[in-house]
Design a protein around this nucleic acid. Sequence first.
DNA 1: ACTAATTATCGTAATATTGCAATATAACAA
DNA 2: TTGTTATATTGCAATATTACGATAATTAGT
Lengths: 105, 105
Amino acid sequence: MGITKTEFFSERQNEIAMMAKAMAHPARIAIIEYLLSVDTCICGDIVNKLPLAQPTISQHLKELKNAGIIKGRIEGTAICYCINKAALGTLQKYFEAITNKMTKK
Amino acid sequence: MGITKTEFFSERQNEIAMMAKAMAHPARIAIIEYLLSVDTCICGDIVNKLPLAQPTISQHLKELKNAGIIKGRIEGTAICYCINKAALGTLQKYFEAITNKMTKK
DNA sequence: ACTAATTATCGTAATATTGCAATATAACAA
DNA sequence: TTGTTATATTGCAATATTACGATAATTAGT
């Protein structure tokens, strides 16, 4: 049916799955890595940097923003996207907790 | 087109995206968390534990296995699934590296 | 061989994702 | 206001995902 039964799982599980989903595409990984590499977060540059059309990039940015992974800031005509450190921190802590549980056995 | 342009991205980016995709569903997060909670990795129990039909669970297990997140071992009639520590370790290190990059700014 | 138990596969319906051309919107400059 | 630049939205085609009933495959016990 292509519809996930979110109501059967915990809020936490849905949250992690949602963030993982946002990162479940190489273009979005590339966007994140690019944003990490530039101090001043440029935006239209992503379109030039990646081999995808502007609407496609825009869509990927929207998904990352909806998942809370990146944030957008209007800067005149341009929009300046940057990483949301808190969100990636959540994922980092989650995987750290998993790793800790594994090594304790 | 619903088809990802994997050839335009690095192997590393595709690998991370693929693993993230495997975790991009609450049921699969629940499966991973269940496998972490049990020392002896039972298998049919997952079907009883989660509110999804057996074929659906089987499909999710297959995806996790294809992504290398879990491993399966034939144990008589049953199949015993367990976490692949190496794979989750890769993700953990990836997010750790990202976090490090962020805090250095 | 027959039966039970366990897991996988097939087939299918409903929905989601990916990608882009075309177009719209927004902000600024002249 | 007109033009330019930057980004978003719409609409659509191709493909992928999710879920499950039905069924197959595998192994163990009798």
